[in-house]
Design a binder for these strands. Structure first.
Ligand SMILES: Nc1ccn([C@H]2C[C@H](O)[C@@H](COP(=O)(O)OP(=O)(O)OP(=O)(O)O)O2)c(=O)n1
Ligand SMILES: [Mg+2]
Length: 750
DNA sequence: GCGGATCAC
DNA sequence: TATGGTGATCCGC
């Protein structure tokens, strides 16, 4: 269950026959008669390995699930989603084909370096324990009603079950399975309605135990926790295994519930371990490099928290990716309490188009949300409406307000507006969520997060509207006099204001100018001579939010945006190898027709894109050198802070004679990165930039080692990005691919 | 910032 | 007959 909330899952509270099952999982091996066993093509989470499901007849489960599902709207939607994933995989595959042998060779160097750095910083000295209660809801129910003992039982209803006990799991019954399918698998299955109050109570009991061993333990959910027992092991000179035994014993004494534990040098590994000898068991991974590497190389990737059904499939077909997991890096640093970031509620009902019914639901949801917000004393400024159509398609619609809200009436007011724009349509679910809470302003500035990118991008994103209320908080946090009303300069009175936007582009490549605003009506951008360049709307009607394309950037040229804006591109310099240059883009508005929100800051942004369509990151996002800064309003404090740092940084990079020698070798550290690997290059440039920045602000040695936080950020980016570096794998028997399979010795394709 | 998706539990 | 609710995060716009 969710870490924050005690209320939870409802857990209960056709049509067309399709013959094209091959649409599912066409990546899998085709049998000679492909319509032989159509259920093989329906990929569900229910076949994935899970504790207590070893002896299950998977073939039967798959068939039953398929038979019960096919033709339903749910099933049809799953099929649609499958097709989209298939497309994503195809795209990755074709991008991977573009990588040259030279590119791979260079990449390997980058990777080796990165691996060395990561390993050097890895901390295997701590002892983490992950504790996980066995069949938690079901165990609690059995505890309170012992007659259930030994019988197959599920908590939930015929629509959905939350979990099942181990007797039921023998039949393939498990969490997130619809009850009516579960009953098909196990005729005698007993259903018990969930009672979340009870589970909270037991959860608190277990936490009392955890607290004794680590008062700063991390609760991952009602039934899971991470404990750092390094100190206990040292003080009492006992092993992690012994501590785990003790904890499990204590938990049992207190609750009469059994749990399982995993012991390892970090949370990621401890979590994997706790699953191994479940139920009522534990597994210890010694703090030795060799043992850890053996363990990991045989580990099916799906066991790693964060790798789900889709990611697993993508990894099977394409991809490298796993530096950090492969290196056993993941959460050994001391725990930090994560503040809540959003609060939501949603309800499923019989699909309908009845708008008065929607209104009623919306009111209930607003009410409940207001109560929960009040309970935690929270206010938020981003409200999101969630809808699920009768065909199971999920949509969200959000607004970010200039005021924090929390009351039912405010929530309902804005939620109604959002919904109104969507009707008429047939829905089966409505939900509301509030986020961007008051007071979380500097949460993102915790040391581990203060990386170059997030630091510079703060308040600089072209998509982010400068929140008036943010500014008030800024004042509060700095003990400055509170201002009753927010500065108006951002929202109004923006006549005769200049914006100068700086950017960086690649010579000869495409420059996109994009704009977004509430007030501008898709202006036609023109050359000075009045000729329209190009104007292309994106798919975001009725909001204006579009892209303008100019095929070749010509320094010094002037463009006009309709009658209202003029943009001046001024060349500032070309680097020695001629592949980059810094330039200046100026935009000025002579007059505006009552733009509704923050138009002067947000109306015009630009970014440079490569021909391959990669979005350049940090440096290409727009820094706003704010002429508005002439104003004395407090808003300037924020805008100024980020843009100042950024322009300084850009300047630094420019004057530091950083360049790609022969368009290939880094002039600072000599590493070789071919031009095709755009995002690797970008990352590398960011990296040197960060060093410069640190030098500027912290006084560290100029090209010295990275600090931890920056490292981690890079590592993360490495995990997710770089489709360009991915490599096709032989996809034999992909069902249980160990991580070793992803470290292919021969990186060159024939 | 927004919207779609993925993931965990 | 019938496929959940809460929260977080990431990517591409
Ligand atoms: N999709 C899910 C998964 C879990 N849960 C709830 C019910 C579980 O009892 C509880 C804990 O989840 P676990 O994944 O730890 O599963 P169990 O504790 O039930 O079983 P076990 O840990 O023995 O595998 O969370 C849920 O509501 N919906
Ligand atoms: Mg559990």
């Amino acid at each position: 269950m969710q870490p924050h909330h005690s209320r939870a899952a409802s857990c209960d509270g056709d049509a067309i026959r399709h013959d094209d099952e091959a649409a599912f999982n066409c990546h899998q091996k085709q049998s000679p008669h492909k319509d032989d066993k159509p259920w093989h093509s329906y990929d569900t989470v229910f076949l994935n390995a899970k504790a207590g499901m070893d002896g299950v007849d998977k073939e039967k489960v798959q068939k039953v699930v398929y038979e019960m599902s096919k033709g339903s709207r749910y099933f049809e939607n799953e099929k649609r989603k499958e097709a989209v994933v298939e497309q994503r995989i195809d795209r990755l595959r074709s991008q991977a084909c573009l990588i040259t042998a030279a590119g791979l060779a260079s990449l390997e160097k980058v990777v080796d370096k990165k691996i060395g750095e990561l390993e050097a910083n890895r901390d295997l000295s701590r002892v983490w324990i992950h504790v996980d209660l066995d069949a938690f809801y079901a165990a609690v129910e059995t505890q309170e009603n012992p007659s259930l003992k030994g019988k197959p039982m599920a908590v939930g209803g015929l629509s959905m079950i939350c979990t099942a006990n181990y007797e039921a799991r023998k039949f393939g019954v498990r969490a997130a399975m619809p009850g009516f399918i579960a009953r098909k698998l196990c005729q005698d299955l007993i259903f018990v309605r969930p009672d979340f109050e009870k589970y909270s109570k037991y959860s608190e009991l277990t936490r009392q135990v955890f607290r004794e061993y680590d008062e700063r333990f991390i609760a991952r959910s009602m039934d899971e926790a991470y404990l750092d027992v390094t100190d206990i092991c040292r003080e009492r000179t006992i092993s992690g295994a012994q501590v785990a035994e003790e904890i499990r014993h204590h938990v049992y004494e207190k609750t009469k519930l059994t749990c399982s534990a995993g012991v390892g040098p970090n949370r990621l590994l401890a979590k994997v371990c706790s699953d191994i000898n479940k139920p009522n068991g534990q597994y210890v991974l010694p703090n030795e490099r060799s043992a850890i590497m053996n363990f990991i190389s045989a580990l099916p990737i799906r066991k790693v928290s964060g790798i789900g059904k889709v990611t697993e499939r993508m990894l099977k077909d394409v991809l490298d990716f796993f530096f950090s997991v492969g290196l056993a890096i993941g959460g050994s640093e001391p725990p930090q309490d994560e503040p809540r970031k959003s609060l939501s509620n949603e309800r499923t009902f019989m699909a309908t188009t009845d708008e008065s019914f929607f209104s009623k639901k919306l009111e209930e949801l607003a009410e409940a949300l207001a109560v929960d917000m009040a309970k935690e004393g929270l206010q938020g400024r981003t409200l999101t409406l969630k809808l699920k159509t009768a065909s199971f398609e999920v949509r969200t619609r959000a607004v970010s307000l200039h005021q924090y809200i929390f009351s039912k009436s405010d929530i309902l007011l804005h939620a109604s507006k959002l919904l109104k724009a969507e009707v008429p349509l047939s829905l089966r679910l409505i939900g509301l969520r509030l986020a961007n809470f008051k007071g979380e302003m500097f949460a993102c500035l915790s040391p581990s997060q203060r990386t170059l990118a997030s630091y510079l991008n703060q308040n600089t994103s072209p998509y982010k509207t400068p929140g008036v209320t943010d500014i008030c908080e800024y004042e509060t946090m700095n003990s400055m006099p509170h201002r009753e009303s927010s500065p108006k300069s951002i929202d109004q009175d923006n006549e005769n204001e200049d914006l100068r936007l700086s950017f960086k582009a690649h010579v000869g490549r495409r420059l996109n100018l994009s704009y977004k605003s509430d007030g501008l009506q898709n202006p036609n951008y023109k050359h000075e001579d009045g000729q329209v360049v190009t104007s292309k709307r994106l798919d975001r009607d009725p909001l204006t939010h579009g892209t303008l394309q100019q095929s070749l950037l010509k320094p010094g040229e002037t463009y006009l945006a309709g009658e209202e804006a003029s943009i001046v591109l001024q060349r500032r310099g070309i680097d020695s190898c001629g592949s980059h240059f810094e330039s200046k883009l100026c935009a000025s508005w002579d007059s505006m027709e009552k733009p509704s929100t923050s138009l002067n800051v947000d109306a015009l942004t630009c970014k440079a894109e490569s021909e391959m369509g990669f979005r350049s990151s940090l440096l290409d996002s727009i820094g706003i050198e704010d002429q508005v800064a002439a104003e004395s309003s407090t808003s300037i404090l924020q805008i100024d802070r980020s843009t100042h740092v950024k322009s300084e940084a850009t300047n630094l990079l420019q004057t530091s004679s950083f360049t790609w020698i022969e368009d290939f070798r880094c002039s600072v550290c000599g590493i070789e990165v071919p031009a095709e690997l755009i995002s690797i290059r970008q990352e590398h440039e960011d990296y040197h930039l960060a060093q410069l920045l640190q030098e500027e602000s912290g006084g560290m040695g100029l090209w010295s080692n990275h600090n931890d936080s920056f490292q981690k950020q890079i590592g993360k980016r490495c995990l997710r990005e770089e489709s360009g570096t991915r490599r096709k794998l032989s996809k034999k028997d992909a069902n249980c691919l160990p991580i070793d399979a992803y470290f292919v010795k021969n990186r060159f394709s024939p």
